[in-house]
Amino acid sequence: MSSDSRRFVSQLAHNEPVSQVFLASDKQLRPNRNGNLYLQVDLSDRSGSVNTRMWNATDNDYKAFDNGDYVHVEGATQLFQGNMQLIATRIRKARPDELDEGDFITLQSADIEKMRTRLTEILEQIQSTPLTRLAKGFLKDDAFMDKFCRAPAGMKNHHAYQGGLLEHVLSLMELVLAVAPKYPQLSQDKLLMGAFLHDAAKTDELFYDRDIGYTDAGQLLGHMVIGVSMLDEKVRQIVQQDGQPFPERLLIELKHLIISHHGEYEYGSPKLPMTLEAIVLHLLDNLDAKVASFSQLMADCPNSESNWTQYFSQIGRKLFKPEKED
């Protein structure tokens, strides 16, 4: 099915018949209140995802496809408590002739290559000698950079698509370049490196060949713990290569930037930000993530005729989406 004829998730309206291909993830076979089984699965394309249910499902329905498979789905949409969902009557693996992989790629390879070039340019602006050594160590690590440019920045909340990590980190680094010169007491070099490293371990926390999920290490450790280990290993490598020591206090400050960037204990931060750079990194990271996630909520809202979205319990509010100015 070509992109010209498909209805993307973001275009689906209430009570609309559906017969097309999606990417399946997070499938579960669950009992309802009466004990009857139903299949729940997230179906996605490059525009977003829709929660899908198949009533009166069997174990064979569950085993008919795997997470990460392209599936052909028949059913109809419905609005439920303000959210769009899809009620499927049939789900099967898609045939190759039914599939256009371009329908599932949010960022094209040319976009990713352009962002990678810009990321390299910014890191090469760093003046600090030890941080320059560290930046070069990561940039020359082809295996790491390949994963860094393919990884998503998260599962659902923001930049949850291949290339999303690179897009988020680059956006954050551009914010650092805009904000740091306004505050001479900040170290722009530390902030740039913190922006680069803060989510770098998403490369190993998540898997992302097709669908997105947590690796075992991601579930057991999380990207902040993995990120500190990743940083230690890279410092060890560059010291071994050039024979020059790496400043211990600087290394501690970089680790603090990684483990404090969530900002609050309730958001999973092991430490509160305690340096100026850590405080600013948290605020800028939160800004970029919030703009991306709120924009996605607005784009996915099924209330297309209203300037207001439905109420989102996860953020405790509706969102206003004014008409676009000419």
Rank of each mutant, 00 (worst) to 15 (best):
198 H>Q: 00
323 E>H: 12
156 K>Y: 14
17 P>K: 10
226 I>R: 00
242 D>P: 02
99 L>W: 15
294 F>H: 03
117 T>M: 05
56 N>G: 02
114 K>D: 10
35 G>E: 08
226 I>Q: 00
157 N>T: 12
145 M>Q: 10
24 A>C: 15
252 I>H: 10
89 T>R: 04
89 T>C: 08
75 G>H: 11
301 C>Q: 13
167 E>T: 07
149 C>P: 11
275 T>A: 06
277 E>K: 05
210 R>I: 14
284 L>W: 06
285 D>C: 13
67 N>G: 03
243 G>I: 02
310 Q>F: 04
118 R>N: 07
51 N>G: 11
110 A>L: 05
124 E>N: 13
29 L>I: 01
15 N>K: 05
280 V>F: 04
299 A>F: 13
87 I>E: 12
288 D>G: 13
287 L>R: 10
298 M>A: 15
209 D>A: 14
240 Q>W: 01
181 P>W: 13
214 Y>E: 12
175 L>P: 09
143 A>N: 13
9 V>E: 02
229 S>F: 08
183 Y>N: 10
201 A>H: 03
22 F>W: 08
126 I>K: 01
21 V>G: 01
142 D>A: 15
235 V>G: 00
237 Q>A: 11
186 L>Q: 04
23 L>C: 09
197 L>Y: 04
293 S>V: 07
289 A>R: 05
193 M>N: 09
182 K>E: 12
128 S>R: 05
201 A>I: 00
42 D>S: 10
151 A>K: 12
218 G>A: 09
166 L>A: 03
287 L>D: 08
231 L>P: 03
294 F>W: 11
246 F>Y: 03
298 M>E: 15
228 V>G: 00
291 V>F: 14
80 F>E: 02
19 S>N: 10
14 H>G: 08
235 V>K: 00
160 A>L: 03
315 I>V: 12
136 K>I: 02
243 G>Q: 10
150 R>S: 01
274 M>K: 10
256 H>C: 09
166 L>H: 10
307 N>E: 11
139 L>S: 08
37 L>I: 11
174 E>Q: 11
280 V>P: 09
174 E>I: 06
247 P>Y: 09
210 R>Y: 05
179 V>F: 11
317 R>E: 13
41 V>A: 01
203 T>K: 07
71 V>Q: 03
50 V>N: 03
190 K>D: 04
271 K>C: 09
154 G>I: 04
281 L>N: 02
141 D>K: 04
155 M>D: 06
307 N>Y: 12
149 C>T: 05
263 G>D: 07
109 S>N: 12
53 R>E: 11
45 D>L: 10
166 L>V: 12
230 M>I: 01
276 L>M: 13
133 R>Q: 08
1 M>S: 09
286 N>C: 15
203 T>F: 06
187 S>K: 00
109 S>G: 02
215 T>C: 15
270 P>T: 14
280 V>L: 08
263 G>H: 02
199 D>C: 08
232 D>I: 01
27 K>G: 09
32 N>L: 04
164 G>Y: 06
172 L>P: 07
52 T>F: 00
118 R>F: 08
282 H>V: 11
306 S>V: 11
284 L>I: 13
219 Q>C: 15
194 G>L: 00
102 G>P: 10
